[in-house]
Design a binder for these strands. Structure first.
Lengths: 146, 146
DNA sequence: TTCCATATTTGAAATCATTTTAACCATGAA
DNA sequence: TTCATGGTTAAAATGATTTCAAATATGGAA
């Protein structure tokens, strides 16, 4: 049975990146917190406990390298910060304007598989929705009851 | 016959913004260059000729005010800069990775009119595509002929 | 029209995220 | 062991955006 760390090590090597301790730890964090869509800062803060010498520059460098290799996708949905998304399957994002949570959403759409639109070649297809998530809607409803 | 400037003046007043000279000029620029999706800098540079005293701060302030009132939409498709989109009808964006141009696209999609998805309330629905525009594709083709 | 209160504009300074730089360190090959 | 290469680090530089306080413009009331 292959361990999770082994899996991530292989992933880095496949992408042509040396599996250094810092890169592995950053990748592990992204993998463990898929739902968080963390910022550079969140990753740095979380790892600084375990790796006291880690620097912001390393987190920036690493995320830029991951992005170039297609391991990670920047998500600029909030408009004020860059969040990072560990790439698994293509999916879309929902930003809750109340709690700020970013929720992964699967939207089926006929354009999804097209390779071309109005003569332009399609390489990437991104979608995002802003609104209020069902948890915040529920809270609002309960508040109004009293 | 109502002039274009009158129309923009009315638009500002309707939104609760005093139609000052600077705001009118910025709005006029946005209206005249719908296809450009300009940055703060592009607007500043273009207006600095006509209004030598205008400041960056004013352009920032004005765009932030326009955004709050729903006159303008920030477009973060390139990942390195904020482009501004003068709101007319809902539409989507195509970024050409060769020439950097942002092209407005009309995509029909069944989800487009939905008010809810997986229980979350939909307020805004954004979509963007990255690829190579038809003009750059044509250039590439011609190059290969020789 | 003139005066006034208020909102807007302005340039300078402050802030904040990100990148650059240069020194240091780790790794693997000769 | 030595060397070359690439990665990590902290400090400094950069660049976009915001804050601040003073100056100015605006629209309403007298």
């Amino acid at each position: 049975m292959i361990s999770n760390m082994e899996r991530l090590k292989i992933l880095l090597t496949e992408k042509g990146l040396k599996p250094t301790y810092q890169r592995l730890k950053i990748l592990e964090y992204l993998d463990k917190h898929l739902d968080k869509h963390p910022t550079v800062d969140m990753i740095y803060e979380a790892l600084a406990n375990k790796i006291p010498t880690i620097s912001m520059t390393t987190v920036y460098n690493t995320l830029n390298a991951f992005q170039e290799k297609g391991l990670v996708n920047p998500v600029t949905i909030t408009g004020t910060e860059v969040r990072y998304d560990f790439l698994t399957l293509p999916h879309h994002h929902f930003l809750c304007k109340k709690c700020g949570k970013i929720i992964d959403i699967d939207i089926k759409c006929p354009i999804g598989d097209k390779k071309e639109i109005y003569g332009h070649r399609i390489d990437e297809f991104h979608r995002y929705i802003k609104g209020v998530c069902k948890y915040c809607l529920k809270k609002e409803k309960n508040k109004n009851k009293h």
